[in-house]
C-alpha cells in the first residue's frame, strides 16, 4: 500500500477547498481542555481558547500528512456566536493564498465553522503558517 505524500507548500492551491471536518463540543473534550485551563469553567459555555483548537483540528486533518516543524505565524478569529457545549460543528478549510518571502514559505488557510444542525455560521478564521517544506 502506498503512503500519502507529504502535504508540502507545492500542494497548496489558492482558492482550493480541502473539505470539511466535524467537531463535537462535548463534555469530555471540554473537560480535557479544562485540565490545561482550569479557570475556563463557565457553565455551558465552550472556552473561547478552543476556537483555535477547532480550526487547527480541521487544518491538520484536511491538509495532511504535514511535514514536521511548521510554525504558526498568525491567526484571525471573527466570532458571530460562540459554540455551546453539546453542539456539533463542521469546519470547511480552503487555501486563501501563499507566498515565498526571504526563502520562507507562507500559507494562509481560511476556515469557516458552522453549526451542523442549523448551518448557522459561528466563526471564521485565517491561519497563517510558515510551512516546513
Amino acid at each position: 500500500m502506498s503512503e500519502k505524500p507529504l502535504f508540502t507548500y507545492d500542494f497548496y492551491e489558492p482558492g482550493k477547498c480541502y473539505g470539511e471536518k466535524n467537531f463535537e463540543v462535548d463534555e469530555g473534550t471540554v473537560a480535557k481542555w479544562r485540565t490545561v485551563y482550569p479557570g475556563d469553567d463557565d457553565p455551558g459555555v465552550m472556552p473561547a481558547g478552543m476556537l483555535a483548537m477547532i480550526i487547527i483540528d480541521a487544518v491538520l486533518t484536511l491538509n495532511a500528512p504535514r511535514p514536521p516543524g511548521g510554525v504558526h505565524g498568525g491567526q484571525t478569529f471573527d466570532v458571530i456566536r460562540m459554540p455551546r457545549i453539546g453542539e456539533s460543528l463542521v469546519t470547511e478549510v480552503w487555501c486563501l493564498d501563499k507566498e515565498i518571502k526571504k526563502d520562507r514559505k507562507w500559507v494562509r488557510a481560511k476556515s469557516i465553522t458552522r453549526s451542523r444542525s442549523s448551518g448557522e455560521v459561528l466563526f471564521t478564521g485565517i491561519m497563517t503558517t510558515l510551512v516546513a517544506m
Binding site: V36, Y37, G39, D40, D42, V45, P47, A48, G49, L51, A52, M53, I56, V71, H72, G74, Q75, T76, F77, D78, V79, I80, R81, M82
Partner: peptide, 28 residues
C-alpha cells in the same frame, strides 16, 4: 502559539464578560 492565545480570550472574558465573546474579532 495558540496555547498563549487562550490567555487573551481569558483577559477579554474576565473584563467584558462571557457574552461579549460572541462579538469579538481577534487578529494576532
Amino acid at each position: 502559539g495558540t496555547m498563549s492565545v487562550a490567555l487573551i480570550w481569558q483577559a477579554l472574558k474576565n473584563t467584558l464578560g462571557v457574552e461579549a465573546l460572541n462579538r469579538v474579532a481577534l487578529e494576532i
